[in-house]
Design a protein around this nucleic acid. Structure first.
Lengths: 225, 225
DNA sequence: CGGCTATTCAATAAGATTATTGAATAGCCA
DNA sequence: TGGCTATTCAATAATCTTATTGAATAGCCG
């Protein structure tokens, strides 16, 4: 193959890949991906979750769909969106890890809103897995997300119920709280609340989708907690 | 943390991640990343490699630098750029895999320029690794890239020397050719040329950076081939 | 110093992306 | 059928991105 032809090939090929990059190049769309990593959602639910007007969210979903990152299932009045492929979460994860590692602004923003998290050192997924039998695992996401899938053995205590249900938790066993992702605030808040009351608590560094992607044990539905 | 504050937090945080997405959202920049995954380059070398004007490449490099994806080392007149972190390649890889899996256009473009590659079934990295002792591994990249790092035991036969050096290669042993990446045309051309002359040849599905990232055996410098 | 080279900067015009708004569609239910 | 709801479409203005051009900078070498 000669050079101009090869150039055209590369240009077109990389143009296709760049479509995906472009789709990932917007904060709202990344938020949508993070929410969708928890499971299927309607447009309205997404709009509620990310705090944008519905028309706006719909527009961003069209972009994600055009890049083949999400798929829709229509059910009566509702359009139920979900991630089209586990690789979509993988790509977001790669991007997120890169940002966390390289952008000092990420640290700065996290520190400004959550304070210095390093003092409550987090457990990573591999570490939790090893100690799964020795700790109480607390899922602080909304119950519907827990039911759609959770760390095996975890208890569902949605963040807004935690204060009222503290007495269910043991003080002599370490508690590991987790949430949607590494930047999900509920887990941090739960840890802070628990520590304030004398519990031994830490957060899982990552979120449920990260855990599942590693192939670590999960369960669905059920009542526990 | 209350909801408006949480919203602001998420917006700023995801805004940071989106900076990286944006930087990955342009075909030229993705090409630059692919070339830089082979090793350090000056602006002029990059311009030559991707076939764009130097000022243009410089501008894109500024964008990549602002997103902390590349770093520069200044040496006299030259600015030597390289990937700032192995995670940058990982992110590009995630994006590439996603595109390959999900975008039918990728298949279409590849088929249009390279024909249907599936008939020469490629070896994947894990497969090659297992059979490393049983095949001849052919590095068809320019010699300087081979010297900067190659699959351990590989022979350097740059694509433009292959025709003249066919006789060095054995006909009774399978030959596995590799290149910069899964879409690097030289490996396909080498396989086609070898097969046409009666050699048993296949290509490695991925490229050298993928091999190295997996932690498979590599070597640098040296003469072999 | 003056000439040379690699790189960056600056300005611009064309094009793409985004939020916002209000209207259109399409399925449910009475 | 008509009313209701979830979603999408369409149009617009404001804001980014990009390729192109030519000038500016900064280090080398004689």
């Amino acid at each position: 193959m000669n050079t101009p032809k090869k150039r055209a090939f590369k240009a077109r090929l990389f143009g296709e890949f760049a479509r995906i990059g472009k789709a990932l190049g917007n904060p709202h769309r990344l938020q949508l991906i993070e929410v969708l990593a928890q499971g299927e959602r309607t447009v309205e639910q997404l709009a509620e979750d990310v705090g944008s007007p519905v028309a706006n969210v719909s527009q961003h979903l069209q972009v994600l769909k055009a890049a083949m990152l999400v798929s829709v299932r229509r059910e009566g009045l509702y359009a139920r969106y979900s991630l089209a492929d586990p690789r979509v979460f993988r790509a977001w994860q790669a991007l997120r890890d890169l940002g966390q590692a390289r952008l000092s602004e990420v640290d700065a923003v996290v520190a400004e809103y959550l304070g210095d998290r390093s003092k409550f050192e987090a457990v990573d997924a591999a570490g939790l897995r090893r100690r799964l039998e020795d700790v109480v695992v607390l899922d602080v996401r909304p119950r519907s997300e827990f039911e759609a899938g959770h760390i095996r053995g975890a208890r569902s205590v949605p963040h807004d119920e935690l204060a009222a249900r503290l007495r269910e938790l043991p003080k002599d066993v370490e508690i590991v709280a987790y949430c949607r992702g590494p930047y999900c605030v509920f887990a941090d808040e739960a840890v802070a609340a628990l520590r304030a009351k004398g519990y031994r608590a830490r957060r899982l560094a990552e979120g449920y989708p990260d855990w599942r992607l590693r192939g670590f044990p999960v369960a669905t539905g059920g009542e526990r907690g």
